[in-house]
């Protein structure tokens, strides 16, 4: 049986999915990268591998997320894609009629507008991460409520308090103020959810026309309070897909399948031994070739140099032989 692996290495989590040749999800894993994407990739792959029967074979690999270049080198990826395209492909393969995708992840949030299953317009948060998962994480830690239960607390509220949504720092000081005044914690959390929704619509949505069906995905879609707040503010039903947290990975797995099936190019996937047995190390140094003083990163497996990046002039990047580099080309 041919299977396709999709990997999404984001700022907070690493997501892994395995699709069969009909695009059905066979296994999935959501794990926190905890600042060590290399280990997350090795652990994630090992988990997926252990769940495989002997007859299944990985026939293609797609990677996405801000750590996609690293993942491409460690795994050998057939498709290296940005998160926006990956999320759009995943949502439209599950919900062909989708017209709006709201995606909120660890450090970024996006809106994708689709018309006839084609991306028509999109936007991503630019300078501010106030409405994203990291901020929710921080607040749940401060209130000592596990992030998994955050949404359940929120929907218990009957009357959300007003919290400023303009900026994460202001939101936090508002929350502390309301908490010291004695408002119930559920109402404060629901107020935070509504503030984040307003922040998202102003900073990311920026007047784009949001039409149903709306799909809400990304790690933050786990929060039932946010789903309720979006539904209330937009006055539209909000759909959260079953595998909302790994949609990016599903998207690139679908793209990897399309690529392999259409191009007849064999996969460049490097296999179990390469990933599981190797000792991957990275090293950084400053290049003194010119006044740019670029910070160069070198990725090594045991003693073999796999990649350089970080140099503006491409002196280091191109020092590795051409065929190896071509496989890593990001399109």
């Amino acid at each position: 049986m041919n299977h396709y692996l999709g990997v999404d290495i984001g700022s907070v989590s690493g997501n892994f999915v395995l699709l069969d040749q009909f695009g059905k999800l066979k296994s999935k894993l959501y794990l926190r990268t905890q600042g060590n994407p290399v280990k997350a990739i090795q652990d994630g792959y090992t988990f997926i591998k252990n769940n495989l029967s002997n007859t299944t074979r990985i026939n293609g690999v797609g990677v996405t997320g801000s750590g996609r270049h690293l993942a491409a080198i460690l795994l050998g990826a057939d498709v290296v894609k940005n998160e926006i395209t990956a999320h759009a492909v995943a949502a439209s393969s599950l919900f062909p009629a989708v017209r709006t995708i709201i995606e909120i992840g660890g450090q970024d949030s996006k809106i994708i507008i689709l018309r006839n299953a084609i991306v028509h317009d999109f936007a991503m948060n630019t300078v501010c991460a106030a409405g994203t998962g990291s901020f929710l994480d921080q607040q749940s830690a401060r209130l000592n409520i596990p992030i998994e239960d955050f949404g359940q607390h929120a929907i218990k509220s009957s009357q959300a308090v007003r919290i400023a949504g303009r900026c994460g720092v202001f939101a936090e000081s508002d929350m502390i103020h309301k908490q010291q005044m004695g408002y119930p914690v559920e109402d404060i959390i629901m107020g935070l959810c509504e503030a984040l929704v307003r922040n998202y619509l102003n900073n990311v949505g920026k007047g784009k026309k949001i039409e149903a069906p709306v799909v809400f995905q990304g790690g933050v879609a786990a929060n039932a309070g946010l789903k309720k707040a979006f539904s209330k503010v937009l006055n539209l039903p909000i759909e959260v897909p079953e595998h909302y947290e790994v949609m990016g990975a599903i998207g690139v797995a679908v793209l990897a399948r399309e690529h392999i099936e259409h191009s007849y190019i064999p996969t460049v996937f490097k296999g179990d031994d390469f990933i599981m047995d190797g000792d991957f190390k990275s090293k950084s140094f400053e290049c003194s070739g010119c006044p740019n003083i670029c910070e160069i990163v070198c990725i090594k497996r045991d003693d073999e140099i796999l990649a350089y990046w970080g140099d503006r002039c491409k002196k280091w990047e191109t020092s590795i032989n051409e065929p190896a580099r071509n496989k890593l080309r990001v399109v």
């Binding site: 940005n82 998160e83 926006i84 395209t85 084609i118 991306v119 317009d121 999109f122 991503m124």
Partner: peptide, 8 residues
């Protein structure tokens, strides 16, 4: 963002 734009 540019890559996503070009894809689109």
């Amino acid at each position: 963002r540019l890559e996503a734009f070009i894809d689109m």
